[in-house]
Structures are given as C-alpha cells and as structure tokens.
Design a protein around this nucleic acid. Structure first.
Lengths: 226, 226
DNA sequence: CCTCGTTTTAAACGTATGTTTGAAAGCATG
DNA sequence: CATGCTTTCAAACATACGTTTAAAACGAGG
C-alpha cells in the first residue's frame, strides 16, 4: 500500500539522494554547465539513465540542486532581516547587520549539509553570481523578494543614497560575496600563503566590513583618508 | 617575394581577423568554454577548419583573443600607476587613484577596438574574473606583475592594514569590478529601469567610490555612520 | 600556361554529450 | 509462487564537439 520506500540500499541512501549530492559537489567545483551527466552518475555509482528517471532532465537536476539549498537559505535571510527590523523598531537597521543577515545563512546552513565547507561556499557563490533569467523558475520569485526586501532595508539605512545608487551598491556587494565564495581558495593558493588561511567566518566578517564601508561612502565626495 | 599578404578579401579583412573578432564577441557574451568553434566560424563566415589552420587549436584561439586585449591594457595599468607614483613622490598614491589606474584602461582601450562597449566590458570582466591557473601562459606573468605592483601601492596607501587584509580587500575590489562588468547589463534589465542606465564612466566612478571606501574601512572597528 | 606555396573547403574522424529504450532486477503485496 | 509496481541497467539514440584529411581554389613568379 505504501508507494515506494526505496531508501537505504547498499549505500547509506537512495540513488536519488546520491545523485543529488554528487551533482552538487561537482557543480560547486566546476560550474553547472561544464559537468556532464556521466561525471555525476560516475561519482554517484549510479547509471546514466537514473538522472532522467529520477529528475526528468539535466536541467531539472540543476533546478533541484539549486532549490534545495537556495530555498532554506533565502527563507532564513528574510527571517533574519525581519528579526533585525523588529529589533530596531522604526529606526533603520545598520548596514553591517543587513549584510550579515544576507550572508550568514550561507554558513549556518552548511553544518546541516554533507558537502565540505569549501564546496558548499563555492556552490552558493555560483548561485549568487547567477542573475536574472539564468536562475531556475522555481527559485526566481524568492530571489526577487529577497532582493526587494534587502534593497528596501539598505535604502532606509543609507537615506542620502538615491534608489539607483543603492541598487548599484547592493550589486557591488553581491559581486564581492559571490566572487570571494567562488575564488577565495584560489587567492589563498596563488598568494603563496601571504593571504593567510582565514576561516569562512573570518572572511565573512571582512567582506561585511568592506561592503558596509563601501555602501556608506559619501556619494560624489572624496574620501576622508589622506 | 613578399610571403603571403592575403588581407582584404570580399569582406573588409582577412579570415584570421574575422575569426578573432567573432570569437571575442561570442566569448564576451557567453564565456570562453560555452562557445563552439562552429558558432565562431559561423559568425565569421569561415570554415570550421580555418580555426585550426590559423590558430592551431581552440585553446590557442582563446589565448590569442585574451592576449590581444589583456596585454595592452595591463601595460597601460602599469604605466598609469608609474605616472601616479612619480606624481606623488615618496607620499603614497591615494586609494581611489590606484583603483582608477587599474580600471580606466578598460575604457580607454575600448574606443580603439571594434566590439561594442557593452561586449568589450563583458570580455574584460570575464578576464578579470579568471584567476590563477585558468589564465593562458602568455599573459599570466604580466597579470601577476600587475597584481604585485598594485598590491604594493595599495599597502602603502593603507599602511594600517596588514598584508593579508590588503590582499583580501584587493580581491574584493576585483570581484566588484569583474562582476559588474559581466552582469551590469543584467541589473539594468531586471531592475525594470530603477537602476537607471548609467554609462560606463559613471559606473566606473561608482565602483571606485565603493571600493575605495571599502578598502579604507577601519579593520575590526564599527562604522561611523548612524 | 604552368608551378608552387598559401588558403579555403567539404567531408570525415573519434569522442562526448543528453536522452530514450526495452529488458532485467527488486520487492512488497495478494 | 504469482502479481504489479518501482527501480536499475546495458545499449543504442541522435546530435554536437574539436580536430584531421585530402582535394580544390587561389594568386603571384617564372
């Protein structure tokens, strides 16, 4: 009567889950387009046809992998922003707290996953780098909502900025985040150790420091320093 | 006696040049890996085999397209930085001038090209986004030299930063630049006009404003604003 | 006109891609 | 055991890729 409970085969989990995890790791490492189904099923000890059986197509596999992580992270982003806003009442939420509400769910949702921290961050970085119509339909509305809510909060936090300025600076901040998530380990490597090996929490703090200062720069005016 | 002067056929230029330009435009639009030789030769009205005849392989075509633009731009970056440094004597060059020396050659070298401004910026953005070992051998030493010279200048400009902090903030700045060059038109589109349609010079000024402020943020301290 | 080096071309090479197929294997239920 | 459904699997599908080949077209010099 119970329809299909195939879980727990020889491995610790069903084929569908194994494929999803292998795909996520490979997507994180090499990007969504460059990974082939045979790479994925090879790493997942599954048959090539299993992808189309369980997911329908490669595109839907990508969608599933994205939605699985993007949805809870975006939900927590909205939750954290709500929390900060209700905490400050009518006063605007400080920029660094807004940025932290956006970035920190990437860390807090890593521990509950199975990917390595490095891969999970790369995965989220690639996601953050994709914009507009390249995102799957299933997560686009939520991304737009997140963008709207955060841009509103940032406008309140920096009222001397016009809407265009705020949108662009938000875009700049997303660039810092996605680029560092994806290529952060490359800098560690090519700097020959001179960049140190900061953990993700350290790195996130530095990103927030940098973006918060950039966001609050006086428009049109020269900087204060020298 | 003169060996080979095939230029000026039915079109305005030789096959080799036509292929190079078509490739550059397609690389800018869709990235280096996603474009096929048949896409390129189709757009260039040339035969598929022409690429391997004139360039040897697809990889060498990519190298040629990159080197053709990266080399003069990196040379002008170094020239501009030299100029600013000799202008300020022993005093450090201000951060915004350093960033401008890095970014402005992308604009000044566009006018002499044949691509549209939008495509040229995307092309350079993709180049700036590639790091480490994914750059062709022919331009890697020059990129490393540019990175070294600019990181040195930035360290002098912000002496209260340690080397790691400076490297990471430089990395952040590159992220802003490459990401905006590649995805700037996407923001214009998905914002429904609310982001305005700033020209590249406007945009570059905003990028420099943002990054200069981020670079000079007080490490570890809270921001002054609000 | 013929020759020789350069360039272009159509066709084929081998390999890889995403997807489909049809049969075999599993597995709970009757 | 037999049934019916889900899941796996090897094999083939059609298409696309980068590259190679060998012949044709071209163009200047003798």
């Amino acid at each position: 009567m119970f329809e299909s409970m195939p879980e727990e085969t020889d491995d610790g989990q069903g084929t569908q889950e194994r494929i999803l995890k292998a795909a996520e790791a490979l997507f994180a490492e090499r990007g969504f387009e460059t990974v082939s189904l045979r790479d994925i099923t090879g790493a997942a000890d599954a048959n090539v046809a299993a992808v189309n059986y369980h997911f329908g197509s490669k595109e839907k596999l990508i969608d599933a992998a994205i939605a699985r992580h993007a949805t809870p992270i975006n939900e927590e982003r909205l939750r954290l922003l709500d929390e900060r806003e209700s905490c400050h009442g009518v006063a605007p939420v400080p920029v660094n707290e807004i940025l932290e509400a956006f970035l920190s769910p990437v860390i807090s949702h890593f521990t509950s996953g199975e990917m390595s921290e490095r891969l999970f961050c790369k995965f989220m970085g690639r996601l953050m780098g994709e914009r507009g119509h390249s995102l799957p339909e299933s997560v686009r509305p939520m991304f737009l909502k997140v963008a709207d809510r955060f841009s509103g909060a940032l406008r309140k936090a920096v009222p001397y900025l016009d809407e265009r300025g705020a949108l662009w600076r938000m875009h700049f901040s997303f660039g810092v985040m996605s680029n560092t998530l994806i290529h952060g380990d490359t800098l560690r490597a090519i700097s020959g150790g001179r960049a140190g090996h900061p953990g993700m929490e350290d790195l996130f703090a530095q990103i927030i420091e940098f973006c918060a200062a950039g966001f609050q720069a006086t428009p049109g005016g020269k900087e204060s320093g020298n």
